[in-house]
């Protein structure tokens, strides 16, 4: 999976010259915590020998709700700056926004991006592409990768968005043969498999693969697993001491 597959592309952005009042309005309206700042330029793009005007977002930085709050906080009275003071709503985004933070490209691996988010304590990563135009590098904003995007991708890869049942199959590290056997049996019985998902548990617990089946009636598969002596867990044990069926 790469960033392009899961990033948010429907962006709400502000221009560097927009007022903070406008930005605050957007943040409140969409309940966002951060807004990418970008200049919208129309560039001629050639497509099949016909020139069309294409909108491009040139990435400038990010405005966070925190930046806004700092700007909105009352400043101690300073007589030397008398007359310069303007209400925060009238200040420009470019005055308070952060310079370009860390970015990723659409081809970055999702795992690497996730690692980056956690290690640096970030809430989001701008997804950009670099182009050369008139001897100058332009940073084009393509999307945003937020923690929510990652969580959703995680939930989807577990199959949580599809109705079905989970069967857990334990396996020894490095050898997923029981999982493969179970999948073969499912295919034989025409049972739809939504996802297979294996976790690498911390603390040396048993490795488990979760097979999400798109069926309300897994009994035929369970019967075959039982026959083939493939261990599995399905439902809580009836007794305290039962672990695997």
């Amino acid at each position: 999976m790469i960033v392009r597959d899961i990033m948010t592309t429907k962006l709400v952005t502000v221009e560097p010259d927009d007022t903070l009042g406008h930005a605050a309005q957007l943040l409140r309206q969409h309940q966002f915590h951060h807004l990418p700042v970008a200049r919208t330029v129309k560039q001629a793009a050639s497509q099949r020998n016909a020139y069309t005007m294409q909108k491009t977002l040139l990435f400038e930085g990010v405005l966070t709700a925190q930046d806004l709050e700092m700007a909105a906080a009352p400043v101690p009275h300073d007589s030397s700056r008398e007359g310069l003071h303007r209400p925060w709503q009238e200040q420009r985004v470019v005055e308070v926004m952060r310079p370009t933070p860390m970015c990723v490209t659409p081809l970055t691996a999702v795992g690497a991006a996730a690692q980056l988010l956690v290690e640096r304590g970030l809430q989001y990563l701008p997804v950009v592409d670099y182009t050369q135009s008139e001897a100058e590098t332009q940073t084009i904003l393509l999307g945003l990768l937020t923690r929510s995007d990652l969580l959703l991708a995680f939930a989807h890869s577990m199959g949580a968005d599809k109705p079905g049942v989970d069967v857990h199959i334990p396996f020894t590290a490095g050898n997923m043969t029981p999982v493969a056997q179970a999948l073969l049996l499912a295919a034989e019985l025409h049972i739809y498999v939504h996802r297979v998902f294996a976790v690498h548990p911390a603390g040396g617990a048993a490795h488990t693969a979760t097979i999400r089946l798109g069926t309300i009636h897994p009994a035929p598969l369970l019967a075959r697993l039982h026959e083939a002596h493939i261990p599995y867990t399905f439902a809580d044990p009836a007794r305290e001491d039962d672990t695997y069926v």
Binding site: G159, A160, V165, I216, A235, D236
Partner: peptide, 8 residues
């Protein structure tokens, strides 16, 4: 829904 269909 831990184990039973539809999981939700």
């Amino acid at each position: 829904g831990r184990y039973l269909f539809p999981g939700t």
